[in-house]
């Protein structure tokens, strides 16, 4: 690998920002990345969430991944865990849906009925 020097230069800045981010998380978004999810475009949904979190300077939101959720026809599926709230599952989360869910559910705590798969206990 070339240019490790370049990495060293960004070390301090990155460390500071990561420390800030690695505190407690209030919200966790889990993207299902099984074969079905990948084929349905779950990676794009995941990247959309990560980009939105970065561009909104949110440090208390975490994006995680899991395997197949068992409802392959509904992929991409995501789970949204907000602290002190019942988990919410969304289906058919494409890039558009991801943007909508982020703006409404993540930022304003309002569930997007259009893409809702289930609410409450898994």
């Amino acid at each position: 690998m070339e240019n490790l020097e370049e990495l060293k230069k960004m070390r301090e800045k990155v460390r500071k920002e990561l420390d800030l981010r690695n505190g407690k998380h209030r919200i966790k978004i889990v993207v299902c990345l099984g074969t079905c999810g990948i084929a349905a475009g779950a990676r794009e949904a995941m990247n959309t969430f990560v980009e939105l979190i970065t561009s909104n300077n949110k440090t208390d939101i975490k994006v995680a991944t899991s395997g197949c959720a068992g409802f392959c026809a509904q992929e991409p599926i995501i789970y949204v865990y907000v602290e002190d709230r019942a988990p919410v599952v969304y289906r058919n989360v494409n890039v558009e849906a991801a943007k909508e869910i982020f703006a409404s559910h993540i930022l304003n705590d309002k569930i997007v009925e259009k893409y809702l798969f289930s609410k409450g206990k898994k």
């Binding site: 690998m1 070390r11 990155v14």
Partner: peptide, 24 residues
Amino acid sequence: VLNTKEIKDTMGFSDIRHKEIQDF
């Protein structure tokens, strides 16, 4: 072209989920 262990060692921490590292 990629060795995440080398990146972790160079940076000195194990969480390398950062935009600048990813862009690099």
